[in-house]
């Protein structure tokens, strides 16, 4: 297994976590797991197995009931809500299945969104140029001022990927990023994610249902038992 080392990419250490929603029967338990810097991991599993919840726990969107999650040197599960948000916006990039773009903004404004909703980040000329450059790399250079409502599904997901990349995060978290795309766009978006992760050396943690793309990841983890798909410990 070739692991790409990255200066900005953090090591993720999961120390036997458990989680339960306040309402509902669902309970998630993840044994100890380590993700190396720059590694690309696919999390697979049936619906309701807790893949998305796992992603939220790693991102600090949700907190485990027990156990610890460390991202780099920081134990994210021990941070305050404000600190987790600040950490997330500066160190992580998130891509969602439904894109989650703001319809009333242009392509460029959507890409720059993290800079407009966090006082931790400063929006300056360099950031704008970087946003435009990333958009150009994914083939959106001529649509920067266009409303995202007028884009195709594939283009919208590419905008979402740009938004996740604009802060140059060390960790990319993607929740079924190709789930709503046709095969052509699916390949394109995955290609972009891998390209950008490789370029920045970022760790890529992706939840997916699509078994046809698993061979592109360094490691595949099955959420049914939180073991590597090859049978070894995750």
């Amino acid at each position: 297994m070739a692991v790409k080392q990255s200066n900005g990419a953090p090591r993720i250490s999961i120390d036997g976590i458990s989680f339960r929603y306040r309402t509902g029967e669902f309970e998630l338990s993840v044994p100890a797991m380590d993700i190396s810097p720059g590694e690309s991991i696919a999390v697979i599993g049936p619906s309701g197995s807790g893949k998305t919840t796992f992603l939220h726990l790693v991102a600090g969107i949700a907190l485990p009931l027990s156990g610890r999650i460390s991202v780099g040197e920081v134990e994210i599960s021990g941070m305050s809500d404000a600190a987790r948000r600040a950490f997330r916006v500066t160190r992580m990039g998130l891509v969602f299945q439904e894109f989650e773009l703001l319809d009333y903004l242009s392509v460029l404004d959507n890409v720059l969104l993290p800079y407009r909703i966090s006082p931790t980040l400063t929006l300056d000329r360099e950031v704008r140029d970087r946003a435009a450059a990333i958009a150009a790399e994914v083939g959106l250079s001529d649509k920067l001022r266009r409303s995202v409502r007028r884009l195709s599904q594939g283009e919208r997901q590419r905008v979402a990927v740009c938004r996740a990349l604009v802060t140059r995060p060390g960790l990319l978290l993607a929740d079924e990023p190709t789930g709503n795309l046709d095969p052509k766009n699916k390949d394109r978006v995955l290609e972009i994610l891998f390209e950008q992760a490789a370029k920045t050396g970022a760790t890529l943690l992706t939840v997916t249902h699509d078994h046809g793309v698993l061979d592109r990841f360094d490691r595949v983890v099955d959420a049914a038992n939180w073991e590597s798909a090859d049978g070894g410990a995750a």
Partner: peptide
């Protein structure tokens, strides 16, 4: 609500989101 949840997931500050 979804838009606000997205901002929270991305890491938007509580104050910044309320300020919008």
């Amino acid at each position: 609500r979804r838009e606000i949840e997205t901002m929270v997931k991305i890491g938007g500050a509580r104050l910044s989101i309320a300020a919008i």
